[in-house]
Structures are given as structure tokens and as C-alpha cells.
Design a binder for these strands. Structure first.
Lengths: 210, 210
DNA sequence: TTTTTACTATACCGGCCGGTATAAATATTC
DNA sequence: GAATATTTATACCGGCCGGTATAGTAAAAA
């Protein structure tokens, strides 16, 4: 399914830079204004490209949208979220994990992506599935593995690591993520974030200490 | 601001039943298909009413939308969510609270309302504020009060009751609420729900026992 | 150079939708 | 009954937008 090749015969080849520009513009506008709120005209203008070029690179609006979502997902998860550092005490390791997770889910682009998926889900279940497996699913598995390792080291006592990972992620997201989704307040500042993470980590350790 | 009165002089009075029908239709369609996905024509048809009658009862689409959201919020929070029963052991009291909260936030209408607010928030911050204060805010305050009472009785040891209430609500919503928002899976069945609540309550008590 | 293809500019089509206009019918007060 | 106001049915306007058509220009392969 890789469109990267232009094996092609005679004629002018497609400019990959234009494709990138279109994709970048689509990501920006879709994440900022939603699906319905982003017209193909506007995306073409933002990309500095003619409208017909859009349709030459992407079949229609939905195909462009899928490509943009896919690219966003891939770009936002560079590799594995977190590899537990064996030497850290459990408070600090959990704190680092929480911080990494937070910065992943609370950025404006991430909030925009969440909004987009939540809006689009009813009409497009496979897209939300793609998003979930590329994003939340992987984070959850990483967290579960971390908790298993910590348990095997005697740092925690977790019986169902997957459920515990769910709890941990829910706690870290907390109320502020919801606030941001409904536009009720902005992200936490640094001090609030530190306090929130310390609070969550302490709670979690109290609940799962050996 | 009550429009209930028709004090009026001569002429045919407005039929309040039609207003109700319009509002009911608007609630159904907006919650099911979103704002853009619900045309005024469709709402009129659903209400069994002429399009112009719509515009005679509500200034424009946005006004109708506001009224529908407001009515939905009021209807979904009959009074106070929960009054702690003094005689129950803490596990059962927390379990009852969690169950009530869950049934409030995980119903299809509630999921639809959440989707709606999340979609509409960027363009309409005051609406999301209205929603938050009528819904989540009140639930949070009820939970906080419950935790304070439980602490004063020595059943729990909570220092910051508001933060603890946030944690509790986050845990109860958990992953499944998110799943439903992005259309990745349906609601929990009864057995899963019971297990989830038992798990969350146990975790919470381990973290906040005296 | 010739051919083939990408790209631009512009205009256009068709559909959907929010909102209005018109005219007739109906219900209620005076 | 007269006056007033709601309701209905229908048609229409104007704008936005996804997608296409046309015609011309630029660039790369043959």
C-alpha cells in the first residue's frame, strides 16, 4: 500500500514535496477546525497548492482525512513510550512514566486529535479503531509491562497489571484532560502538573505497595 | 428569563405541546447526529411540525440548540446524585456512589451529550461551561462532600477531598468511557461493571484507609 | 522535439441547509 | 363577527462546499 514509488513511465513525476505540504496543511486544519470545519479549498490554500492538485494526490476528502490521521498517529508515537529504568526508586519511575504520558495526551495537537476521533467515531468506527491501536492501546501495554516488571522486582504488588495500568492512566489524565476536551480550561501549568503527578503517584503506591 | 407565560392579548396562543415536541426532537437528533448533522428540516419533521413553527418558537438553530442542551442537563440531574447512607459500611457506600455515577455518565444519551460538548466546545465556550457546571461540577461536589463526611466519621482518611473526588470519578469512568466516546466498544455488561466497580472501590479504600 | 503527465487558474455544477416570503387556514381574545 | 396571532404548505434565496470541466503552462521521459 506504499504510494511512495513513482515507478512511472513518461511524463512529469508528482512532486513529493507538494504531497507533504498537503498532508501538513490537512493535519493542521483538521486538528484545529475538525472535519466539517475544514474545506478542501482551505486545505489547498494552506498548502499553497491548487485544488486540483489535492485531488490528484488524494482521491477525495475522506482519503485525505485518513492519511492525515494516520500520519499524525505515527508521528506522535516515536517508538516505545517508556522503558523502565531499573535503578530508579518506584516513586520516581512512576513519576517519569506519568510525566511522559501526560505530555503525550495533553498537548494541543493531542487534544485536537481526541476531539476529532470523538466527533468522527459514530460515522467511522474503523478510523477510531486505527487511532486507538496506534495510540492509547500501545501506551496501555507499555504501562502494563512496566507494572509487571515492578511487581516482579517487589516494588509493587499488582495482580491484574492491565487493570492497574488502566487505573493509572485514568488517574493521570484526570479531570484536566476532560476540561481541555470540553474547552473549559487550559492545560495545567508546571507547578500544578507536578503536584498532580505527585498526588497520583502517591495514591497509586498506597494502593499497590507490597 | 421564563418563557412559560403567554400573558398575551388577542390572537391564537402558542401551543406549549408543540414547543415540547420540538425540544424533544431536538434533543434526540442533536444527541444522536451532532449539531451539523441535524438539519432544522429534520428536527421539524421529527417533531411533526412545520419548519416555520420552529422559527416561531426559537430564534434560530443556535437558540434551539442551547435550549435543548439546557433541558437535557436539567433532566439528567434530578436532584442531588447521592446522599451518603450513614449506616452502610464504606465499601458498600462507595460502591453505591460509583454505580450511581456510572449509570449517569455511561448511558447512550450521556455519551451523546459528551460528544456534543466536546465537538462544540471550540466555538462555544460558554455552552461547555453551562454543561460543566450543571453536570460534572455538581457530581464532583457531591462526591467531595461524601468523602468529607466519611473522613469525619473515621471511615476514610482524606486530606484533600476535592482531589480525592476527582480521582474517584476518574477511576470510575476509566477506560470504558473513553472507549465509548471514540466508538471503540459498547458499554460494560453487568458482570464487567460489577467487577470494575469492586476493583475501583478496593483500590480507593487501600489508598485512603485511615 | 515530441509525448506524456503534473500543475495552475478559473469557472462551474449540484446538493444541502439556514433562513425568509407568501398565502391560506385555524384558533383565540375582544 | 372582527381582529389578531399561530400554524401549515410550499416555494424560494443565498451561501458554502465537494467535486468536476476546461484550457493552458511547466516539467520530465522517450
Amino acid at each position: 500500500m506504499s504510494e511512495t514509488a513513482q515507478p512511472a513511465g513518461p511524463g512529469r513525476p508528482k512532486d513529493p514535496a507538494k504531497r507533504e505540504a498537503i498532508l501538513a496543511a490537512a493535519k493542521t486544519l483538521f486538528l484545529g477546525n475538525g472535519y466539517e470545519g475544514s474545506s478542501m479549498e482551505a486545505i489547498a490554500a494552506e498548502a499553497g497548492v491548487s485544488k486540483l492538485t489535492l485531488y490528484s494526490h488524494f482521491k477525495d476528502k475522506e482519503a485525505l482525512f485518513c492519511a492525515a490521521v494516520q500520519a499524525t498517529c505515527e508521528q506522535r508515537l516515536p517508538s516505545s513510550l517508556f522503558h523502565p529504568a531499573p535503578e530508579l526508586p518506584i516513586e520516581q519511575a512512576l513519576g517519569a512514566l506519568a510525566t511522559a504520558f501526560w505530555s503525550l495526551v495533553s498537548s494541543p495537537e493531542s487534544i485536537g486529535l481526541h476531539r476529532l476521533m470523538i466527533t468522527v467515531a459514530p460515522q467511522n468506527p474503523d478510523m477510531s479503531r486505527l487511532f486507538y491501536e496506534a495510540g492509547p492501546q500501545r501506551v496501555l501495554q507499555d504501562t502494563r509491562q512496566f507494572l509487571q516488571v515492578a511487581t516482579s522486582r517487589g516494588q509493587l504488588q499488582v495482580t491484574d497489571a492491565l487493570k492497574a495500568a488502566e487505573h493509572f492512566c485514568s488517574l493521570v489524565k484526570g479531570l484536566n484532560h476532560f476540561h481541555q476536551l470540553i474547552g473549559h480550561s487550559g492545560p495545567l501549568d508546571e507547578a500544578q502538573l507536578r503536584e498532580h503527578i505527585a498526588d497520583v503517584v502517591a495514591l497509586f503506591i498506597r494502593a499497590y505497595r507490597p
